[in-house]
């Protein structure tokens, strides 16, 4: 996902001189294609996330669309108030980019486990969350954000993820993307890097005939679009590599409250079992309940 991101960002930057890349002294062997090509639109803020996010907001107020790139929680919680007050409240076009969403950096310990980020971002009224499920969705999200600059949060996996889409899909905020049609009764709905995991589950005998949808663009503003899509299904299992608390599934559940229990929604996300544990992404995901 990292290389799809930087490749697509550079392509968009060639088309749009507002696009800039601000990094928090991270991105070795990732960001160089952009930095070398657009040195006037590249900033390394150093290891100082509060200033990084504040200055990105200042740049955005003068016409730039900065993509602010760092690892896991660093561009989220270390500068949470700058995101809330400076970026989102002023409705400035800053895209926060976190690489290593979920438990992608599982071996690096709790500091690097990004499993509470949706909870923060979905509380900000105009924040658009972009959580692509494969490298093709990464490209689709970057294109969408480049064409619709706004307060936004792009949550990437790491590197080497398989492509589920054959081509770059069309993405629209709040709209489910069909991956597998199924028999029309039940569906998985994933956001972020758990898409390939849910695809594997379809092969299990318990889920024969199930459909699979991805929802890469969502947030508070798109809650109103969910009930009309959910009502077509008997059961929906939401899937995310985020805590079950205050994440994607609970957002979906809140969105569907007007439907009074139809469909039956099950939230499949991480439990508190993963706190403080170390392991590979797949091992920790399984420990947390993603299996």
């Amino acid at each position: 996902m990292r290389s799809a991101f930087i490749d697509e960002l550079a392509a968009q930057a060639a088309l749009d001189s507002r696009i800039a890349l601000v990094v928090g002294d991270l991105g070795f062997s990732v960001v160089e294609p952009f930095a070398d090509r657009f040195p006037d639109r590249f900033v390394n803020s150093g290891v100082a996330e509060q200033n990084m996010m504040g200055l990105a907001a200042g740049m955005a107020s003068e016409g730039y669309h900065p993509f602010v790139y760092s690892i896991a929680n660093f561009p989220v919680f270390r500068c949470a108030e700058q995101i809330r007050n400076d970026v989102e409240y002023h409705d400035l076009p800053v895209t926060i980019v976190a690489v290593g969403g979920g438990l992608a950096y599982g071996n690096l310990g709790y500091s690097h486990h990004a499993v509470q980020d949706y909870g923060f971002m979905r509380m900000l009224p105009s924040m658009l969350i972009a959580a692509p499920g494969d490298p093709m969705e990464v490209r689709a999200c970057v294109r969408y954000l480049a064409r619709h600059p706004q307060p936004s949060y792009l949550r990437l996996g790491k590197a080497g993820e398989a492509c589920l889409h054959g081509d770059v899909p069309e993405v629209t905020p709040g709209r489910w993307i069909k991956i597998v049609g199924g028999d029309g009764t039940n569906t998985f709905l994933t956001t972020g890097a758990t898409l390939p995991l849910a695809r594997e589950w379809l092969d299990h005998q318990d889920y024969q005939g199930w459909a699979l949808h991805s929802l890469p663009l969502w947030g508070m503003r798109t809650k109103a679009l969910q009930a009309a899509q959910a009502v077509a299904w008997k059961r929906v299992i939401s899937v995310e590599d985020h805590l079950q608390d205050a994440g994607f599934g609970s957002w979906l559940l809140e969105s569907c409250l007007p439907l009074a229990g139809r469909p039956a929604i099950e939230i499949r996300g991480l439990s508190s079992e993963i706190f403080g544990k170390v392991g590979t992404q797949s091992r920790l995901n399984a420990l947390g309940g993603l299996k």
């Binding site: 900033v43 509060q50 200033n51 996010m53 504040g54 200055l55 990105a56 907001a57 200042g58 740049m59 955005a60 107020s61 003068e62 016409g63 730039y64 700058q82 400076d86």
Partner: peptide, 11 residues
């Protein structure tokens, strides 16, 4: 000040 730094950098 961080916000002003961003403005000055943009200018």
């Amino acid at each position: 000040l961080p916000f002003g730094v961003g403005k000055a950098l943009a200018a």
